[in-house]
């Protein structure tokens, strides 16, 4: 399966036309929960046509604050209503000192943070009565790190016993920004936990800095890293094309989806898994 991040910007053309045919759609529940009117109708139509994946923004599993059970309860109701195939969140924090920040901030790579975050993920999984997938986020500076990013991610996954959302573009971005080998990083992740993959474009803003904008087409080195990842994972995990800004004509997005499918099919052709 290769899906697309469902955006209001292209919803009409997408739902009325045939230019874009993903296998599923992904949305941020925060943008669609508790609403009615026009967008509720559009969302309903989209979810009647396509399987749904949810990718949360505001749960803030890495926050020092207490978990927001009221919000989590709304997420649970939304999950029960729309029955998404996956609910994922970010390995980051977006709330601190009781203030939402509406973006994903890097958690300090420390031992106590591993325990704290893993415990919160466990609480979330217990409350939702399902495993969740956690995404490795892109980051532009480390914060008081006492261990490597890889050690931090693997430790959280093991301690929380959660699934991994492998955002291949984020690994590429982080490897560039923090000067490590992205293939080595991926090779040493606990790949058995990969439940879901994200692919996206990015923007290079300085000689030594890439920002994860989701505003450009995927570049070849990221496709290559995806190919490399699929060869290692050897499982038919769903893949999402994210495009949030600077959205091109829909056939261009379909071409990206086709290329992702082709890479995935080729990587898995010698295995027992059939690709969808």
């Amino acid at each position: 399966m290769v899906g697309i991040g469902f955006r209001k910007d292209f919803s009409d053309e997408f739902l009325l036309g045939n230019a874009l045919k993903p296998d599923f759609i992904e949305v941020a529940p925060e943008n669609w929960m508790g609403i009615g009117g026009y967008w509720k109708k559009v969302f309903k139509e989209a979810t009647e046509k396509y399987p749904l994946f949810l990718h949360g923004l505001s749960l803030s599993v890495g926050s020092p604050d207490k978990l927001d059970y009221n919000f989590l309860s709304n997420i649970k109701k939304f999950i029960q209503e729309y029955k998404p195939l996956v609910y994922s969140e970010h390995l980051s924090f977006s709330k601190c000192d009781n203030a939402h920040l509406y973006d994903l901030l890097p958690i300090p790579f420390t031992g106590d943070a591993v325990k704290h975050v893993a415990n919160r993920i466990k609480q979330v999984q217990e409350f939702l009565e399902q495993k969740i997938a956690i995404e490795i986020v892109s980051y532009y500076t480390p914060v008081a790190a006492e261990m490597s990013e890889l050690e931090f991610v693997n430790a959280v996954l093991a301690e929380a016993d959660c699934d991994l959302l492998l955002d291949v573009n984020n690994v590429y971005v982080n490897a560039f920004n923090h000067d490590y080998n992205p293939k080595e990083f991926i090779k040493n992740l606990d790949l058995d936990r990969v439940k879901y993959i994200h692919m996206a474009g990015h923007t290079k803003v300085a000689d030594d800095l890439i920002i994860d904008t989701h505003g450009e087409a995927i570049i070849d080195p990221v496709y290559e890293l995806f190919d490399f990842s699929m060869q290692l994972i050897q499982k038919d995990v769903p893949v999402l094309l994210e495009r949030d800004f600077n959205i091109p004509e829909l056939p261009e997005l379909q071409q990206e989806i086709n290329r992702l499918k082709a890479i995935k099919t080729k990587a898995l052709k010698n295995t027992a898994y059939a690709t969808a």
Partner: peptide, 12 residues
């Protein structure tokens, strides 16, 4: 760790 996160968030 909390202080580091708090300072980061406060800066943002």
């Amino acid at each position: 760790t909390y202080q580091h996160q708090s300072k980061f968030a406060q800066f943002c």
